[in-house]
């Protein structure tokens, strides 16, 4: 009995000691870990600005539990200085490995150097960092925007062939309009690049015509307004709409309905992200496909961390699997969606 109380006390103290960084994950490992040394990972998350981010956090916490890794979780509440503080405290605690989602790209050199000097490997998760020396981190885990763009085109090409759609203007080419993300954002640039690349390399490249491309700034409002204008300019010609994110597609759907056309039927609609609203639209038959931008990066992170600590070599860039969800699986998938 005394032993159990002592153990509980020790566990409680650990929670208190580490809890100052913010939310503390329930670490189940300390009691059950019998074989081998347990890994401790310090993880600094940006905060909880969206459903997507919340899913990202949940995934990492769950994966740590499953992998038997002791996770020291710290919430930076959207501030870089909090992240730097958290990483310093991880170093002071002597964790085995550090992972973090960088809130901004720059300003990490000093603190990562400290980690390197302390011989603690660092994994960058989800976003990019710009550092003078690439050896400051061991691996980067994230989503591949170029591949998402690739997948969009691949799906369109297959779908058009499968459904035996004919161009609405009676010509020989399908006309595509694109709603781009915020001008200059890396995600928008890479998604567009991936889409165009896949189109150029495809054997069916001649079947598609990029009619117009304009920024909708990743918002519903602008997506709707720009689509309204596209419809006025090229109304009867548009066959396919590709939106860089789901929200713009959702705005565009309303504009298409207002123009008296049937979204999802007259105009084939595909976008990227995989938020719940888009699944709802697909169930209603108003959209055709969404390419996932996967926040569930936890399992891959834990796997990579274990490999690094076991001395195995890992790729510098590791990407999570990302699904493509067409409308026919939407109803089945929606209840399972975590974000």
């Amino acid at each position: 009995m005394k032993k159990i109380i002592a153990l509980l006390l020790a566990a409680a103290m650990m929670v208190v000691a580490a809890g100052c960084g913010g939310e503390q994950s329930a670490s189940s490992g300390s009691g059950s870990g019998s074989g081998g040394k347990q890994i401790t990972m310090g993880f600094s998350q940006i905060g909880a600005e969206s459903e997507w981010r919340t899913a990202n956090t949940e995934s990492i916490k769950q994966a740590a539990k499953d992998a038997g890794i002791n996770l020291q979780f710290s919430d930076a509440q959207q501030k870089q200085e909090n992240q730097i503080k958290a990483i310093r405290s991880f170093i002071a605690q002597g964790v085995d490995i550090i992972a973090f989602v960088p809130i901004v790209e720059t300003g990490w050199d000093t603190v990562l150097k400290e980690a390197k000097d302390a011989k603690i490997p660092v994994i960058v998760v989800d976003r990019d960092v710009k550092v003078s020396d690439d050896s400051l981190y061991v691996a980067k885990i994230g989503t591949d925007s170029v591949k998402e763009g690739n997948n969009v085109f691949k799906w369109i090409d297959e779908y058009m062939a499968k459904e035996k759609k004919t161009p609405r203007d009676g010509g020989s080419q399908y006309n595509v309009v694109v709603l781009e993300g915020t001008v200059g954002s890396s995600v928008a640039i890479r998604r567009q690049e991936g889409f165009k690349d896949a189109m150029a390399k495809s054997a069916n490249a001649g079947k598609y015509n990029l009619l117009a491309s304009q920024t909708g700034e990743f918002t519903r409002q602008k997506g709707q307004e720009v689509m309204e204008s596209f419809l006025k300019s090229y109304g009867p010609k548009i066959d396919i709409l590709f939106a860089h994110n789901d929200d713009m597609a959702l705005g565009a759907i309303q504009a298409i309905e207002k123009a008296g056309l049937k979204p999802g039927k007259d105009i084939t609609i595909i976008s990227i992200d995989g938020v719940k609203g888009m699944f709802q639209a697909m169930i209603d038959g108003k959209a055709n496909c969404t390419v996932e931008c996967n926040p569930l990066q936890g399992p891959l992170l834990m796997e990579t961390a274990k490999k690094i600590l076991a001395g195995e070599k890992v790729e510098k860039l590791v990407y999570v699997d990302e699904g493509v969800f067409p409308a026919d699986v939407a109803a089945k998938t929606l209840p399972e969606r975590k974000y």
């Binding site: 117009a212 304009q214 204008s229």
Partner: peptide, 14 residues
């Protein structure tokens, strides 16, 4: 704004 969209001014020049 509508004019810009109608003319198809590219996003970065808008």
């Amino acid at each position: 704004t509508t004019t810009m969209y109608a003319l198809g001014v590219s996003a970065d020049q808008l």
